[in-house]
């Protein structure tokens, strides 16, 4: 009976069509099933990690006992922090420049700025490798100076994202506010600090989180720029996988996923806020 009572499917009710549901289901399955398996097997009480042998937390403990892994995580966080810091300054200034001024070859510069976003990572990685080798960039400095090459490489692909987000935010800025501040006696700097910066703030924060996560889980470019003493977390996980996929690798990966999810969620939340107050 209930089948007969159903209203007919309206043209835009795609989710009520069988083929559409199957398509969505398949998409979600291939997207999330691997991640789910990875996380589930991080709790597997087995060394070989092929068959489920019972629940345990011990591999999470092992992750934190693995000194090189912890050191790699420390490196990753340090690089991400430094790259983010520089990226928000560079990115914000670039965004303000592109928004505020008209200058020769502006379109070209704008395009060049987004180049690191579109250039394949592997090319960026090779380019960085050749570049730093050519410069004879010192790789045996004390921590954290030995991370400088990776950090610089990360800044190059992180700050364009900050520029993008901040620029989008600036598009909604009412220039009369700037004039109002000037009119009330504020200098150019005071106007920037009191009016433009507060407006850009959500964009800067969202851009910073984006840069942080991008830097934190970058593998390709880092792989080409890291030396034996400057292993980052993703690179370390990769090297562990080459021996065997133990639950320890799963646990480490799960932790990285967790960190990324948290940061991305905060970033998206702030972007919503950006739209709401535009």
């Amino acid at each position: 009976m209930s089948l007969l009572n159903r209203s007919p499917i309206a043209p835009l009710e795609y989710t009520r069509r069988l083929w559409m549901r199957a398509w969505i289901g398949a998409t979600l399955f291939f997207l999330y099933a691997p991640l789910l398996v990875l996380i589930v097997f991080s709790f597997n009480d087995s060394k070989r990690n092929i068959v489920w042998r019972g629940f345990t937390f011990k591999y999470y403990g092992k992750v934190f006992e693995n000194d090189t892994l912890v050191a790699a995580l420390g490196n990753s966080l340090t690089i991400a922090f430094l790259a983010t810091l520089v990226s928000i300054v560079l990115g914000t200034l670039a965004a303000v420049m592109l928004w505020r001024f008209r200058f020769p070859a502006k379109a070209g510069i704008e395009g060049a700025l987004s180049l690191p976003i579109v250039v394949p990572e592997i090319c960026m990685g090779v380019a960085m490798l050749v570049f730093f080798a050519r410069l004879d960039w010192p790789s045996d400095l004390v921590w954290p100076l030995n991370l400088s090459a990776i950090t610089i490489a990360h800044i190059t692909f992180c700050f364009p994202f900050v520029t993008m987000v901040v620029r989008a935010r600036l598009a909604s800025f009412n220039k009369e506010q700037e004039e109002a501040a000037r009119d009330l006696g504020a200098s150019e700097w005071q106007t920037f600090r009191d009016v433009l910066l507060p407006h850009m703030k959500p964009g800067i924060i969202a851009g910073a989180l984006l840069a942080f996560t991008l830097s934190l889980d970058d593998f390709v470019i880092t792989f080409f720029t890291s030396g034996p003493n400057t292993i980052t977390f993703p690179v370390k996980v990769y090297s562990m996988v080459r021996f065997s996929v133990t639950p320890e690798v799963n646990a480490a990966s799960a932790l990285l996923i967790l960190l990324t999810i948290i940061l991305t969620t905060v970033a998206l939340k702030l972007q919503d806020f950006t739209k709401a107050t535009a």
Binding site: N174, E176, Q177, A180, A181, D183, P198, T277
Partner: peptide, 13 residues
């Protein structure tokens, strides 16, 4: 002189 702007330009924050 001081100005009242068409959009009012009240600082939203």
């Amino acid at each position: 002189v001081n100005m009242v702007f068409q959009s009012y330009a009240v600082f939203p924050h």
